[in-house]
Simulated scan of single mutants.
Amino acid sequence: MRTPTFIIVVLFFGCSFSGCLGDQQEVSEIPNVSNQPITIPEDIDENAITMAGSSTVYPLATAWASSFMQTNSQTSVYVAGGGSSAGASRVCSTGQDHVDIGDMSRGWKAIEASRQGNSRNYTCANSDVEVTQIPIALDGITVIVKRGGAAAECIERLGGLSIAQLRWIYSDWTDEDLAYSSEADLDMASVTSNNDGDTNREWSDLSDDPACSTQSINLWGADSESGTYEYFGENVFCRKCFLREYGYAEESFDGNRGYQSSAEDNAIISALIEDEYAIAYVGYAYFAESSSELLAVPIVDHETMGATDVISEGGEAIIPTEDSIRSLNYTPLSREIYMNVDVSSWDKVRPFFQYGFSADGQLDVSSVGYVPLPENIRQEALELIN
């Protein structure tokens, strides 16, 4: 995985960006501290490009920025994290925290912006800012466990995990809810064939195979500001329940069983490497960087039965790879990831996107671990850019 050249800039109160950075032409990470919004000072060069948002998009954003500035030294590019929700709010902002590009690993919510017809153009809900959604790559949310650990051994015996089993593992609904709710209807005899009936969820509940430990399943994943969190929740849980739509019982990640979340994918990776009983989900690029220490769980796209039974009936467990993500065979966890451009910034940011969609820019997509867009979507993106 190619490591882009960038510096981490810590902003202390009273330290302006110009004072911290000087004239350095490098990609700068703007720290996103919880409950302390980071603003971009007015004295930044008006030609500088600013972007913030998704931690999933971040590796590609920094790779493009680093490469772009090597041949465009007159233009500074500032890249911040913060999650997809931050990307949406900051590109829509009319305040000092406004950015030219909002990075997101999910689509827009109705409370954030309204779509203009069937286009990729949106009008922000809380301002008059209009944005264009540019798909930049494909990602496959990758379910991971420690390679060679107890969880990996159990999953290998099962042949993978089904969407139903992922739901049982992460959901805050009880076994009875999952079995009898009209919004679930899981076949629990298939999903957890060795369930001991207690309130703990252990690897051994999934199978009586000796490889499946009686240890509890330790849960890791993205935090609630992340587009990865929302995409995973919408596609694994009851979507309307996860979105808290009226008339549906709420369903989410099980905090009572210790769901641990982080805005930093690398923190999740580190936790998994240290815990053989843990399971997590991250963007494919983060898994690819640590694949020697982590196992990507094969996923069976079945919402009511366990992986072993589905496979025995001719179903298939799909491992996330560049091919399975591009072909969308890795369902339902393949997705587009986006950069959303304030339309008033197009003259400034267009050269940046022209680099991103050049041959070299597309090599960056692969080098950081993501999948280049299919040709039809790539052409659509180029039309939006040009």
Rank of each mutant, 00 (worst) to 15 (best):
N194L: 10
N386R: 06
F68K: 00
S292W: 04
L373P: 07
Y246T: 13
E176T: 13
Y355H: 03
T174V: 05
Y355W: 02
A52P: 05
A280E: 12
D323H: 08
G95E: 09
V282M: 10
M339H: 02
R326F: 06
A179G: 08
A280P: 06
G102T: 00
R326M: 08
M1V: 08
T5Y: 10
K109F: 11
M69T: 02
E276G: 09
Y170C: 07
S204D: 14
V129E: 05
I30H: 01
E202A: 11
T71R: 04
Q70P: 01
G361V: 00
T62P: 00
F232Y: 11
D100Q: 03
D23Y: 11
G149L: 04
G356K: 00
N121F: 03
F287C: 04
K109H: 08
A88H: 12
D139C: 08
D177G: 07
V9Y: 06
G221I: 07
D45F: 04
S204N: 14
A152H: 14
K240A: 11
V371M: 02
Y259I: 11
A271R: 09
N121E: 12
S171Y: 05
A152N: 14
P4E: 06
R147V: 03
L328V: 09
I30F: 07
W346N: 01
S358T: 02
A48I: 00
G53H: 04
A184M: 04
W168D: 09
N386H: 07
A189N: 12
T62N: 04
R378Y: 09
Y286F: 14
S216D: 11
R326S: 15
D139N: 13
A296S: 14
V10G: 09
D185P: 00
Q165T: 02
M1A: 13
E225S: 15
P31I: 12
A263H: 10
T321C: 10
D265Y: 10
A189W: 04
G255R: 07
W346F: 07
A211R: 08
V349D: 00
A307R: 08
E130A: 12
Q36A: 14
A179C: 01
V341T: 00
G227P: 08
W168R: 12
M69L: 03
M104P: 00
S207H: 07
S28W: 00
A48L: 02
G117R: 04
L161P: 04
E46C: 06
I144H: 07
R2C: 03
Q25R: 15
N329S: 13
E336K: 13
L363C: 04
I279G: 09
I318N: 03
M69H: 01
E289D: 15
M51N: 05
S312K: 13
R147T: 10
I111M: 01
I44S: 01
L384E: 10
I8N: 15
T214R: 05
D223V: 01
F242D: 06
F17L: 15
A285C: 12
P372W: 02
N118W: 11
A184D: 08
D209E: 07
Y58V: 01
E250P: 06
A249M: 09
E276A: 09
G19V: 09
E303S: 15
S345I: 01
K240N: 15
